[in-house]
């Protein structure tokens, strides 16, 4: 076993074990054992499980974003302090002060990269399993937790005539390209690009404040909007159909999750917050965060008043500890 295989081994164990259980359950409720749709659904269930396991992280992040309301006066002060200072060192100093501010308030709206890092080995494990499925099947071996028979089915499974372990490039370079593989890959890549694009566009058009829309962060967001489709395109033609199913499903989950956040927990001062308040007004409810905002407007010089209200989330924290 190579270095990479050794690291991936535990993840492959988990991924193939979940796939096996899902496949057995789906077969028990009547899906054809050899059908590609059975494996496709198993992969989708794998995505649902992994993303569901990450829900606590997501909830944590929403709570932090809600607490951001209390930070607004301090953040505005910080922006005022660095207004017009566009040189790199000042920008760095501002970032440092901002991180320190988050720490002081014990709330950090940034997500960290761990949620993505954790998903990566699972993704590679699935990729690895699908890539090796053919070879293992021919050698009468099982992959991870899959039995030899299941590995046969896994390697030979297909949807609309496209094998789950086939890749766009593989069939393209094979001399006799399979139209079904090419078509399904292209459809999947388009679905991934579209879902990513919508997720990103949603954030940019609805969930950002005016200041953020004019800041340097916006440039980054715009870049992301146009570079990511390229990444998906290049990745997509190299990845087996099964991995594309995984990727599309996880993207759709993100899209739904993002839609939910923007609808129910919009960034203060964004378009989405105004829309939420309109919906609340229609139902006869007061605007979200109204009390806090009034307090800020009435006493912009005096930082004491908002702080009295700020003590509430702090108390909650203390109780938890």
């Amino acid at each position: 076993m190579g270095f990479f295989d050794t690291i991936l081994w535990p993840f492959q164990f988990v991924v193939t074990w979940i796939l096996r259980i899902c496949h057995e359950i789906l077969t028990a409720i009547g899906l054809n054992e050899t059908s590609g749709w059975n494996w496709t659904l198993s992969i989708v269930l794998l995505v649902l499980l992994i993303r569901a396991a990450l829900i606590p992280v997501f909830v944590k992040q929403i709570k932090a974003q809600r607490a951001m309301q209390a930070l607004q006066p301090d953040l505005r002060k910080l922006q005022a302090k660095y207004k017009g200072k566009k040189d790199q060192l000042s920008q760095q100093a501002m970032l440092a002060e901002q991180r320190e501010l988050f720490k002081r308030h014990k709330t950090n709206p940034l997500s960290s990269c761990l949620p993505l890092l954790i998903q990566m080995p699972f993704f590679f494990a699935l990729f690895h399993s699908l890539n090796n499925a053919r070879g293992a099947s021919e050698n009468e071996e099982g992959i991870g937790q899959l039995t030899v028979t299941q590995t046969h089915h896994f390697a030979d499974s297909s949807i609309f005539g496209a094998g789950l372990s086939d890749t766009f490039l593989g069939t393209f370079n094979s001399g006799s390209p399979q139209i079904s593989v090419i078509l399904i890959s292209v459809v999947m890549i388009l679905a991934m690009v579209a879902s990513q694009f919508i997720t990103q566009k949603q954030i940019m058009t609805k969930n950002m404040t005016k200041e953020a829309l004019e800041g340097p962060f916006m440039q980054q967001q715009k870049m992301m909007l146009y570079i990511l489709p390229l990444v998906f395109g290049i990745g997509g033609i190299n990845f087996p159909i099964g991995v594309l199913i995984y990727w599309t499903a996880t993207n759709l989950w993100t899209l739904g999750q993002q839609y939910w956040i923007i609808r129910n927990n919009p960034t203060p001062g964004s378009q989405a917050e105004r829309e939420l308040n309109e919906r609340r007004a229609a139902k006869g409810l007061p605007p979200i965060h109204e009390k806090k905002k009034k307090a800020e407007e009435e006493t912009p010089e005096e930082p004491e008043l908002p702080k009295v209200q700020r003590s509430q989330p702090q108390r909650k924290n203390r109780r938890k500890k």
Binding site: Q92, L95, A96, Q98, R99, E100, F102, N108, L110, S111, S112, C113, L116, F217, Q220, Q221, M223, M224, I227, L228, V231
Partner: peptide, 14 residues
């Protein structure tokens, strides 16, 4: 890094 955006909780970023 620019594609992924500014997500690090610390300064300096990871």
């Amino acid at each position: 890094s620019p594609i992924y955006g500014d997500v690090c909780k610390y300064f300096p970023s990871c």
